[in-house]
């Protein structure tokens, strides 16, 4: 009974969420058919759809998407392996923050795209500079949120760990990391969406393969419908990744799954 209600609620939420885009597309289609829009840069949604079908058929859509996703996966994994342990260490060290904070704040102000030319000069135009950009884009949110998570550990729980004679390793694994989960997850979500955006920019500039390269190719060949396919793909994939991460969050943190969100 409750499950059924939850399910219908869920469907309702989805339905509400897609109403607005749906209306917008219908309006766009009508405007395009009536000739109010310049087909050179605003092709009709049906035309975009045909371009999409064609791109799926000739394999270019999947090829570019996979190229981008692969880079995203590598870059993001490397970032997580670097930023989380480093964040844990820095969060635990008391005075370390004072040493690195100004530098971090400085670096944080520089958008990843500003580094792309340097990365290209140093690393060429193939995979390396793109992955470097991704790492740069995701590092700060993941690192800073991990530090914040460790800093906000309840000292009373740390004391419990001390009273129960936890080894330093167990203390980190069983007290610090679970306490910081929430914050780390926020960092991961932010980092991943930063990654995705930075990757598209990197691909647009280096122009080899990937969704970003496809956009630029569409411009070169005057194919606005293909550009729109790529742009919408970016948005949709980003959305799916975020939904997926939110799901993971619920799976990893069953104690947060309650309605009121209160913790002990």
């Amino acid at each position: 009974m409750l499950y059924k209600r939850l399910k219908t609620n869920y469907c309702k939420t989805i339905l509400k969420g897609i109403t607005f885009p749906f209306l917008l597309i219908v309006a766009w289609e009508i405007a395009a058919r009536l000739g109010y829009l310049n087909a050179l840069f605003l092709p009709a949604p049906t035309k975009i759809w045909y371009a999409f079908v064609q791109m799926v058929a000739d394999g270019s859509w999947a090829e570019n998407l996979l190229a981008s996703l692969q880079r995203l996966a590598y870059g993001f994994l490397i970032t997580v392996c670097l930023a989380v342990p480093l964040g844990l260490a820095v969060g635990k060290a008391k005075n370390f923050q004072n040493w690195v904070n100004p530098t971090l704040s400085f670096l944080q102000q520089i958008p990843p795209i500003a580094w792309i030319p340097i990365f290209i000069l140093a690393l060429g135009i193939y995979e390396a500079p793109k992955i470097a950009v991704i790492i740069y884009a995701a590092f700060f949110p993941v690192f800073l949120n991990t530090v914040q998570g460790v800093k906000s550990v309840d000292p009373k729980l740390v004391e419990v760990g001390r009273a129960y004679m936890l080894s330093p390793l167990r203390m980190i694994r069983q007290v610090y990391i679970p306490s910081a989960y929430m914050s780390i997850f926020v960092g991961l979500r932010l980092g991943l969406s930063n990654c995705w955006r930075a990757l598209v920019m990197a691909e647009m500039i280096t122009r080899t393969t990937g969704i970003g390269a496809q956009i630029w190719e569409g411009r070169d060949l005057m194919q606005p419908d293909r550009i729109f396919v790529a742009v919408f793909t970016i948005g949709l994939v980003g959305l799916i990744i975020d939904i997926f991460l939110k799901r993971m969050e619920c799976k990893f943190m069953p104690w947060k799954r309650t309605n009121d969100g209160k913790t002990q």
């Binding site: 009373k156 729980l157 004391e159 419990v160 001390r162 009273a163 129960y164 004679m165 069983q174 007290v175 679970p178 989960y181 943190m253 104690w255 913790t263 002990q264």
Partner: peptide, 18 residues
């Protein structure tokens, strides 16, 4: 320091929420 022969129960339960 803390030792294996003494266990403390605090005023608040101090359980691990996770």
């Amino acid at each position: 320091g803390p030792g294996p022969e003494r266990a403390m129960v605090f005023q608040e339960p101090r359980l691990f929420p996770w």
